[in-house]
Each structure stands twice: as structure tokens, then as C-alpha cells.
Design a protein around this nucleic acid. Sequence first.
DNA 1: CTTGGATGATACTTTAAAGTATCAATTGAT
DNA 2: ATCAATTGATACTTTAAAGTATCATCCAAG
Lengths: 197, 197
Amino acid sequence: MNQVTRERIITQSIACLAQNANISMDEIAKSAGVGRATLFRYFKSRAELLVAIKLHAGEQLKAVVSPIFHSDLPAREKMVRIVTRLVPLGASLNVSAYFIYPMKQEDPRVMASYQKYSDQTRQLCLDLKAEGSLNADLPLAWLVASMDNLIFAAWEQVESGDIAPKQAPWLVLRTFLAGHGTPDTVTWLNKQKEAHQ
Amino acid sequence: MNQVTRERIITQSIACLAQNANISMDEIAKSAGVGRATLFRYFKSRAELLVAIKLHAGEQLKAVVSPIFHSDLPAREKMVRIVTRLVPLGASLNVSAYFIYPMKQEDPRVMASYQKYSDQTRQLCLDLKAEGSLNADLPLAWLVASMDNLIFAAWEQVESGDIAPKQAPWLVLRTFLAGHGTPDTVTWLNKQKEAHQ
DNA sequence: CTTGGATGATACTTTAAAGTATCAATTGAT
DNA sequence: ATCAATTGATACTTTAAAGTATCATCCAAG
């Protein structure tokens, strides 16, 4: 098996499924530039392909989030870095991993992968609270949910061409930190933004 | 044809599709408590049913948003009322109307229905800016996108039981107005919240 | 050159769900 | 009480896509 081909199939599948969640294996094969038979050689069923896509997205997430999360930066610094690098992942993240099917009873492997990610973002929000960057009275669930969804929203806007790719992460951060944080968190953020440009 | 039955089919379809976007007409019929044949009498094809669901959601949206939008309240007051009434609609809104299928090339009737809604929320955001409730430098697309997605996020959290139904709209409003607005908008919002309780 | 694994094309079977047709039972209005 | 309309059950056809099997070709390593 060829790892490059495998990756290409996954990448193209994501592109196809973003357009139409019910796209056939036939179309996917065409789009990936491989024969139908080859597609089934790499992924023994459609279900397996979907799992593979989601696990792949999980890998990407982990590759971005974990190193930053385990660094010893202050939490708000971590947040800036994570969001900045997560927004461009939007396509594979949201579309492929957790949005193709509104997934109750998801495959356990996928669940486990997602769990790891969400544990880290939850912890990060706790750290932000502890650090005093976020208002203490907000429910943790809301912090996590709003962050995820703002990242998704930003990606959508980039994708549709309404917002510049470089601007998008800052919009997320601004909305998130100003929306949940203290005023000086915002002034801090503005400085960060200037520094990054 | 019985309008009540029609409504029930639509309602139950939404519930089913929220669990599994690929659910069969068979299952939908069972869940709605009608015979398979009857289901096809009311909706001549699966595609028609999906359109009907989305148009139904469009109606609900319109029923909530339009009267408030066309009132002569100040924009931020409108925003509070719209969000408060929109969050509980979440299920039919997001799940059924615009999330079941990631819909490029959507049915034109559905597009038209959605257009009306999004025009109004866009205009509302403009009004909020004009009123000085929202920061002038934020892209309009971001205001609209973040609002929609925060409402969706709030619904999800209510649905999953992590956030109280009555609290959810205020979280959206707080994140949105604090995230995009001026400090005094936030103090105004807090007063509103107390008044509503 | 030649050989073995990977590929693409294609033809085939299977399956699941859509959609149709029919009919007896039920219901509700007059 | 009757009759027209609506329904549920069920059996049927159709369709689209999944999944399988086969074989000729191609390419890279020896």
C-alpha cells in the first residue's frame, strides 16, 4: 500500500463529502484519481473510509493542540496559538471529523480521538479561568462550546471568501476573549495581534 | 390531507434526522406513527420531505424574527428578543434546516427562505453598529456568522443537558455583545437580564 | 528481461432503500 | 346507515450504490 495515495484519497474524500455527505464511493474514487477497485483495496468499506477520515482529522488536531497544550506557556498564550493554527484546519476538522454525520452512536475509535481533544480544550479553559483571563462565573461547557463553534464559524467565512484567512483567527480570539474575559485581556490581545504582524 | 398529521410527520422527521441523517423513510414513518404508504402520500419523495422540513423551519424562523425585526425597538433590544426566542428553536433550525446536509446546490425554495432570514440578521447587525452597540471595525460577515453559530452552540449545550434552557440565551447575548460591543453595552445587558428574571 | 505487487477497467452480485400498486379496514360527514 | 375519503398493511418493482471477482497492464527491483 502506498501511504501517499492513502493520504490523497482521504484528502479528496473530505473535499467531496464537504460538498455532499452522501457522495458515492464511485465519485470519491474519481475525485481521488484512483480506480474504484483501488479505493476498496485501501478502505474495505465506506464505513471504514469514514472512520479513517475522522481518525485522520483527529491526528491533525492532536498534532496541533498537544504540543502547545503541553508547553509551559501561559494559558492565554496557548489559546492564541491553538486558535491561530486550528482555524486553517477547519475543513478537515469540522467537515470531516464531526459534522458529516450528526453522530450519536459514533465509532468508539473516533469517540476516543475526539475525547482527547475536547479534554485538552476543556482543561485550557479551566486554566484560563484560573489565570484570571476569563470570567469565573461562566459555565465551562459554554466556554468550550463557544470556542469550538467560533472556530468553525471562522473557517466557514474563510471558505466562503468573506473573511481573510489571516484575519479569521483574530476575530475568533477577540470574540472569545472579549466575550468571556476581562477588559485587560482584550488590550493584551491587541498587543499580541500587532506583534504577530 | 390532514394538516395535523403533516406537522407530526415533519416534527418526527426532524427528531429522527437529528439522530441519523441517513435514516430511511421506513423508520421515519414508524416514528411518526403512520403507515409507510401514508408517508409517501403526504410527501411524494424523500427529497420533497427534506425540502418540506427545511421550509417548515424557515416558517418558524420567520414567525420569530420578522415581527421583532419590523418593530421599532432599538436594535439591541431586538437582538435580545430574537436570540431569546431563537435558541429554543435550535432543533428545527439548525438540525433540520441547514445542517442535515452540508448543502451546496440546495433547492431554490429553501435558499430563498434562508435568504430572507439572513438578510434580516445582517441588517440587524448593521443597525447594532449604527446604534453604537457594536464595534464599528468588525466585518459584517463575522458578526452574522458568530451570532448564528453561538445560537447553535447554545442549543447544543441545552440539548446535551450541560446548560439550563433559561440561561442559554443570555450566554449567547453576553458572548456576542461583550465580544463585539462596547463596555456599556455589557452593563446594559446585565440590567436587561435582571429585568427578565 | 522478468517477475511480483499494485493498479485500473469492467463486469458481476448483493443489498438496502425508494417508490408504486392494491385492497381491506376505519373513520367522519351527511 | 351509507358512502367517500383516508389510512395501514403488504407485496411488488425499481434503482442506486456497495461490495466482489477477474484480468490485462504497468512499473520498479533484482
